[in-house]
Design a binder for these strands. Structure first.
Lengths: 220, 220
DNA sequence: CGCACTCCGCTACTTAGGTCACCGCCCCCG
DNA sequence: CGGGGGCGGTGACCTAAGTAGCGGAGTGCG
């Protein structure tokens, strides 16, 4: 934990880069080991400079920061990526996190906090600006999927073993004939099972079974 | 922004409460205006003390902190809730955020940060412990639903307007007759539409349409 | 033992789903 | 202007899905 934190700056604006360089230069434990003005330069530069943290802008000419992050994080022992940008649409945030960014900080954040963010990311901690945190919270809170999923699982639990197998197959979009083959029973038997499932769950047709199964499987 | 921050402590452990009281008492801008040992005491106490922030434990005897938060946040101009707990399963975190908690902080957090968290929550900022942030990030990033959803939407875009309407109805589990009624067309027409959809999307039966539509709708 | 019950399977029948062939419409392009 | 080509609609036809009813195997219980 005593070595310096090696940082690579990626931003198409030279002014922003020099500003960051200044801001980070003030910290004795941080060293800026390189700069890139476009996402396409990132991969080679990372190989060359071996940074611990990449400070990544999103909006850049040929290859944007999100794509660059995706490429970067796809390879083994990649450095941590701290996205630093002005834009934070849901799209951007989600893609960044999905790509494996360790943090997402807005540019208008006061300098000392940006420095702190770099340190935290280097230490393996996640860092999000409050506005981004709020988005994330809204995202998971809003996605009312969970209660549905839980309830769906509960309802499916009421089925007999064989019935559940059939239900799952229906949920995969299989026809009765396919299910019969898969589960080694006759087509008529599949039908009876489907009927029983419908009755037990109070549904009208196999599509509703499929949707229910699908819900139940959402995030197991 | 100059008034004191009025805080209500909710924790079944008297020791924890006195610890928090001590910790928050040190801050000149914070005043502890009440304590509760169980979720069931929260609502009346809030009415009485009018706190700005409720520091809420989860695990409590009769009514747990999550349920209490749900009740509390359901009413108008409720105070902000900062969940302060040792446990942070996905379940807990999600329920808390869904219930409208403004923050989720772990008890092993160093005291100064807890104090800071109270201030931020009072100011309307969200606050999450790093571990919780990480969970949230994993949640949204991991929910590999997105690529599927995006692709599903793309495929659905290939359909004509009327066809898409039918597809959506199929996705709701409707029968052809129901769809006909809803969309003011004859049953045969619904069927042709379904057929056309199947052909365009390369599917075999309506269940698969339903699943595709369902996927496409996942987090719009 | 005999009873009730649930699970699992089958047959025989009805209804909903899906395919085909065809039509009118509108718009765009040669 | 005249003919594709996508779109929206219909009816006849066939196959798959769903219903009703029955029987046997296993379980649990008085």
């Amino acid at each position: 934990m005593s070595a310096e934190i090696r940082v690579l700056l990626v931003d198409d604006d030279a002014l922003v880069r020099s500003g960051l360089r200044l801001m980070l230069g003030g910290a004795p434990d941080i060293e800026v080991v390189g700069e890139a003005a476009d996402g396409s330069e990132v991969l080679p530069l990372v190989a060359q400079c071996a940074p611990d943290v990449v400070l990544m802008d999103i909006r850049m000419p040929t290859l944007d920061g999100l794509a660059a992050t995706e490429q970067l994080r796809a390879r083994p022992d990649a450095p941590e990526v701290l996205v630093l940008t002005t834009f934070h649409t849901d799209e951007h945030v989600l893609r960044a996190l999905r790509a494996g960014a360790a943090g997402f900080v807005l540019k208008h954040t006061p300098p000392p906090e940006i420095v702190a963010a770099v340190r935290r990311v280097a230490a393996g901690e996640p860092v999000l600006s409050p506005a981004v945190t709020r988005q994330l919270m809204a995202q998971v809170a809003g996605g009312g999927a969970r209660p549905r999923a839980a309830e769906a699982q509960a309802r499916l639990a009421a089925l007999a073993d064989r019935e559940r197998e059939v239900a799952v197959a229906v949920g995969r979009g299989r026809s009765n004939a396919e299910i019969a083959a898969e589960l080694f029973m006759s087509v008529p038997t599949v039908k009876t099972n489907v009927s029983r499932i419908l009755a037990k769950l109070g549904l009208n047709n196999r599509v509703q079974i499929a949707l229910l199964v699908h819900d139940a499987e959402e995030l197991g």
